[in-house]
């Protein structure tokens, strides 16, 4: 696969009260971004520990986003 075709897969852990709300707001505002993100809602970014991040990388994520 050539460099130009590389499509990263990004797992996003989003805090319900801020980052997830922000991701919703991006939608409400019709801000467009590439569809490479898969979001996982948590009640707080504190829920996310190193194990979840490792797991995402182990399963092939190219990037992990923790928003909180």
């Amino acid at each position: 696969m050539s460099e130009s075709q590389f499509e990263p897969k990004i797992v996003g852990f989003l805090c319900n009260w801020c980052a997830y709300a922000g991701a919703d707001l991006a939608g409400v505002s019709r801000l467009q971004y590439p569809p490479n993100l898969r979001t996982i809602r948590t009640l707080c970014s504190a829920t996310v520990g190193p194990h979840q991040i490792l797991k995402a990388f182990q399963k092939g994520a190219d990037g992990v986003f923790v928003g909180g």
Partner: peptide, 28 residues
């Protein structure tokens, strides 16, 4: 599964890729 605010509304010009993401969010 959030397929509007975090999918259809942010991938309005990418029908195919947006649909793929929606599938993944539903599977999750």
């Amino acid at each position: 599964a959030n397929i509007r605010d975090q999918c259809s509304w942010v991938h309005m010009r990418e029908r195919e890729a947006g649909t793929e993401r929606a599938k993944v969010q539903i599977a999750m």
